[in-house]
Nucleic acid binder design. Structure first.
Lengths: 174, 174
DNA sequence: TGATGCGTTCAGAATAGTCTGAACGTACAA
DNA sequence: TTGTACGTTCAGACTATTCTGAACGCATCA
């Protein structure tokens, strides 16, 4: 059997599904993704729908979403005219692809809104200062994310480096 | 008038409210937060409810949430027995406080779930490998976030540094 | 040509998330 | 003690999101 039906695989599917919220991904989409991650062989749309107990329609839409993220792709299976799907096997690549898509969908519009507000005159002192700070913060975060997206490989190394370094407290305040 | 009713302030409240999703914060909570950010003077609960056109109950719950994030605190106004609220004025500090709370609420349980799965025997080859990768990724991200939370000041500088550096492409693959 | 197998779409059902407002608790003053 | 002025809670109303499944379009084949 190429599709594991083990407890571990099932638990994994559910855990990943629940975790979807953390990544801003809906439960069905995350479960489809998890199933593909837990399965080496390509799966057909109706195979996925059946295993996860969801409708074909839902499975179809979830797969479309995953393809726009770029973490799932279609493959051909000779002698079968159904579409089959496999997932990007590298978890880090997935991570960066999801990051890119979420940035595009949510972050960029937010940054635009703040910038637009800053451009129009009439902001008073207090709010103007906070708007500027906010803009600075978002722009910084954007810069970091852009850097990551441009070079995932070295970013992964950099992340590991920062994560692994022991904490070195500053001498003293004031 | 210490509470601005300017267009900019209102737009800011709505923009921040819509942006809440990006930070994993609900709209009302984000709007209350934005109103406090846009207002220098402390605001009372019913003042907030009235300005945002939300119920006292909602305002009360939103303020509680903001206090658990640590981005809003109560202040006394002499001669008034109502509770008044002000927001943490520094946007970066806010950012790190929200990061900490979201990590605690969403990230830590997810990491636990993966670790628990890894501990129990019975995972097959393919899925075991992906689980390990996932665990590695989440642990790395956790390390980075922890580092940030331990020393926000230097983290801010580090972020700005990474964001500002021009991209330096690797020589060549292979 | 019609029949079959497949994937997609989308109106409406089901579910999950948010908000309201009445009821309640507390503190204080008379 | 009673009355008043708050803040909080939570059942139920309301709203947004997600999911289903019937209808459809497109290939393929007889």
């Amino acid at each position: 059997m190429t599709t594991p039906t083990t407890d571990t695989a099932q638990q994994f599917v559910e855990a990943w599904g629940a975790m979807g919220a953390l990544w801003g991904i809906n439960r069905s989409v995350a479960r489809v993704h998890a199933l593909l991650m837990a399965t080496e062989a390509p799966l057909s749309l109706d195979g996925i729908a059946e295993k996860l107990q969801i409708s074909k329609g839902n499975a179809s839409m979830s797969l479309r979403e995953l393809r726009t993220f770029g973490v799932v792709r279609q493959v051909e299976v000779p002698g079968d005219r159904r579409d089959f799907y496999v997932t990007e096997p590298d978890v880090w690549t997935m991570f960066f692809r999801i990051l890119r898509e979420r940035k595009r969908r949510e972050f960029d519009p937010a940054l635009d809104a703040i910038h637009q507000l800053l451009e129009q005159p009439g902001a008073k002192g207090e709010i103007l200062g906070r708007l500027k700070q906010m803009s600075e913060l978002l722009t910084t975060v954007e810069g970091v994310v852009n850097r990551f997206l441009k070079d995932p490989a070295s970013s992964k190394a950099a992340l590991a480096f920062v994560a692994g370094l022991p904490f070195n407290p500053k001498p003293k305040k004031r």
